[in-house]
Amino acid sequence: MSDLANEPSTQRTEPAAPPERAPSSPAAHRKPGKPALSEGKKAERKLGLLLCAPAAIIMVLVTAYPIIYAVWLSLQRYDLRFPGEQQFAGLTNYAAVLTSSYWWSAFLVTVIITVISVAIEFVLGLALALIMHRTIVARGLTRTVVLIPYGIVTVVAAFSWQFAWTPDKGYLAALLPEGAAPLTDQVAALAIIILAEVWKTTPFMALLLMAGLALVPDDLLKAAQVDGAGAWQRLTKIILPMMKPAILVALLFRTLDAFRVFDNIYILTQGSNGTGSVSMLGYDNLFKAFNLGIGSAISVLIFIAVAVIAFLFIKIFGAAAPGSDEGKR
């Protein structure tokens, strides 16, 4: 295996990845009890840390401050409309959120959108990746075309979906029976939101999976073919197992993204008719109700949910954290 872990790490950096995880693979000489470094190495390492420090400090300031501030806000009774009544409220905001049916219905909607859209994206993304991988003619063109939806601003795409599904105006609504207004019905609207998500992010999934495909040696596939393995068997017995780390990373990224779905819902339905995600709920409580305490509690809960998803993926499914040493020789 070559350096697989480097491929996905060029795509995106999610905050949830724990940086140091003891490699379980054969890299025995790099275990904790390694020999002391030479003087030169030490100085080099120190210089390296110094050079990284400015970037690291800025990152911490830019990301840590808002997170800490949000946690602090979530423990306050703080409503912009009642500035005189700001006070420490402990966990009451969390209690209010977690006992509210609005939170749980939004949570359910979010989980539905996440699971269905990621599942469809995975299947389509894998198909696209196989096509892009196998294309011989006009390779660059194919890859560019496939990536177009990912390059379009989500809000712009969402607006065009909205017009397309608006009765009397849209070309897609015209395909439906007279009088149908799909964006006003919960199930139909959720289906449209999922469609918009899938259309938009399948290319991203395909790109990550294609990086994984590059790791499957052609010799192995040829050998299997000679032994009489069919296309399906080669896919399930060789390609997918060898791609497993890349698949898990792709699924992890997409799940984290999908869980925070906001733009498409905001444009398509504004969360009406039971289509609001947890991010919409947070937005409405922060920017319509001006309730910073409750809104921040929702944000923190979303952050925790995302962290739990990442943790589960890494611990249970064994996804390699981007940048970790797994897969290196």
Binding site: S100, W103, K288, I298
Partner: peptide, 15 residues
């Protein structure tokens, strides 16, 4: 009545 009291006290969530 229940929800309006909560909104009035800025305790509850808005949907």
């Amino acid at each position: 009545a229940d929800q309006v009291v909560r909104a009035e006290n800025s305790e509850g969530l808005v949907p």
